Computed example of a mutant assay.
Amino acid sequence: MSHIDIRRTHGRPLKEAKAAIERVAEHLAEKFDVEYGWEGNTLAFTRGGVDGHIAVSSKEVHVTAQLGFLLGAIKGPIEREIHQYLDREFG
């Protein structure tokens, strides 16, 4: 199993950061067919072969995911895609 662990600091208020992560989740859901939902300040997402969370605080976004065997083979492109979405939303 492959693991993704990405941390990104930001200077947005928590409400704005959560809205930005909601947009990131919408992109990921469209691109990778994941289901997601909020649990407090953590967005959980899942689909066959992936289980992850995006924790949002007033200072940081922390993306973690466990990738199954098949998706683990394309871990690099998945990480790049996540970084691109975070770059768009948090600059």
Score class of each variant (00 low, 15 high):
Ala65Leu: 09
Thr64Asn: 07
Trp38Tyr: 08
Leu70Thr: 12
Ile54Arg: 06
Glu79Val: 13
Gln84Ile: 04
Gly40Glu: 08
Val24Phe: 01
Asp87Gln: 10
Trp38Ile: 09
His53Tyr: 07
Ile4Asn: 00
Ile82Glu: 04
Leu70Cys: 05
Ala73Tyr: 09
Tyr36Ala: 12
Leu86Gly: 07
Ile82Ser: 05
Leu67Cys: 10
Lys15Gln: 10
Ser57Tyr: 06
Glu22Tyr: 01
Glu26Asp: 13
Ala20Phe: 00
Lys18Tyr: 00
Glu79Thr: 11
Arg12Gln: 12
Thr9Trp: 00
Tyr85Ile: 04
Gly68Phe: 08
Asn41Lys: 04
Val63His: 07
Leu28His: 03
Ser58Leu: 06
Gly68Trp: 04
Gly40Ser: 11
Lys18Asn: 00
Thr9Phe: 02
Phe69Arg: 11
Val61Tyr: 04
Phe90Asp: 13
Glu16Met: 02
Ser57Gln: 07
Arg23Cys: 00
Thr64Met: 14
Thr46Gln: 14
Phe32Gln: 07
Glu16Arg: 03
Leu70Arg: 06
Pro77Tyr: 09
Gly49Met: 08
Asn41Ala: 10
Arg8Met: 07
Arg7Gly: 05
Trp38Phe: 07
Asp33Val: 03
His83Gly: 01
Ile21Asp: 00
Arg47Pro: 01
His3Tyr: 06
Glu39Gly: 03
Arg80Asn: 15
Gly76Pro: 03
Thr64Ala: 08
Ile74Gly: 07
Val24Leu: 10
Arg47Ser: 15
Arg88Ala: 12
Ala20Leu: 01
Val24Lys: 07
Ala73Trp: 08
Thr9Ala: 12
Tyr85Ala: 13
Glu60Arg: 13
Asn41Ser: 14
Ser58Arg: 10
Glu39Thr: 10
Glu16Pro: 00
Gly91Glu: 15
Glu89Phe: 01
Gly52Pro: 06
Ile54Ser: 03
Arg47Tyr: 02
Ala25Arg: 02
Asp33Gly: 05
Ala73Phe: 15
Gly48Ala: 13
His27Cys: 05
Leu67Asp: 11
Gly48Trp: 04
Val61Asp: 03
Phe45Ala: 09
Asp33Tyr: 01
Ala17Met: 04
Ile78Lys: 01
Val61Leu: 13
Glu60His: 05
Thr9Asn: 10
Leu28Met: 15
Ile82Lys: 06
Asp5Asn: 10
Thr9Gly: 03
Glu35Tyr: 00
Arg88His: 08
Asp51Asn: 13
Arg47Asp: 15
Gly68Gln: 09
His10Ala: 07
Thr64Gly: 07
Val63Leu: 13
